[in-house]
Design a protein around this nucleic acid. Structure first.
Lengths: 136, 136
DNA sequence: CCCCAAGCTAGAGTTAACTCTAAGTCGAGC
DNA sequence: GCTCGACTTAGAGTTAACTCTAGCTTGGGG
């Protein structure tokens, strides 16, 4: 079965070897194996696990909480409920984040339109009269 | 015309007075006025401007870049193009961010389903056989 | 057999965006 | 006139997540 050095794994995951060692130090890779001389080697399953770590990171979850999840995984079936609840919560977090981004997008698009009109007129003054009428 | 103290403005914007003073120090509020004795007071237009700052922050823009935008605003019509381009770029950033969140959501939902099945079975082992068949 | 790129560790340094502390001032209410 | 809460400043402290440095070891190619 194919394995990866830390450099290769970093490339695949679009991270640095520094970051991977940091994750290891923080306990996010209890499964990781080493060669006799101490060199880390990453199995496909390790890469898959790190992709989940990356997914959780992209929901804004801090490393310490991700570690809690990893610990639950090591503990086995007795933590199934916690892990399930955690993903439900992450889902809610991502939904909230997306909703916030939709609001942000509205403001940005409004500003794009504002500056397109201003550019056409050559001056921002075109918006002076109806400033009070602007939504947000 | 109604004005706000730093504490009131913080409440309205859901920030702390510390954060507002920090923004001031970083040059995000060149328009801000003070009383004779040095106390900041925020006009409605200042609140509106800070909402734009907040919007830009929520696109992931660092404070220093937001300051550049604020400086452009102070410079007047000669920077209309830059400001327009900046909002176009922010739009692209938000779109990319949303697309990434959609991918994150797919993984999360997949995991939710995974743990629901495992909970029903009482063990994670139900997934052992078809692990290789799992997308991602 | 030698070399060098890439691995290892411990621990120091970086960065952003606050967040807080200390010491002082101001203004409204009793 | 005094007090108290909210304001002011300068500058120190915090936190997360890396990122780098120094000094050392190791494994594969010529």
């Amino acid at each position: 079965m194919k394995t990866y050095s830390i450099g290769q794994a970093a490339k695949v995951l679009n991270l640095t070897p520094y970051a991977l060692r940091y994750y290891d130090k923080e306990g996010l890779m209890p499964f990781l194996e080493r060669s006799a001389s101490g060199t880390r080697f990453f199995k496909e399953s390790d890469i898959a696990s790190l992709k989940i770590v990356d997914c959780l990171k992209s929901t804004g979850m801090p490393i310490k909480e991700i570690k809690t999840f990893i610990d639950w995984c090591s503990e086995g079936d007795s933590t199934l409920q916690q892990r399930h609840d955690m993903f439900q919560e992450r889902k809610a977090v991502v939904e909230a984040h997306m909703a916030a981004l939709v609001e942000t997008m509205k403001v940005i698009e409004h500003k794009c339109a504002y500056y397109e009109e201003a550019l056409e007129a050559g001056t921002e003054d075109v918006h002076k009269d109806n400033w009070a009428a602007q939504p947000r």
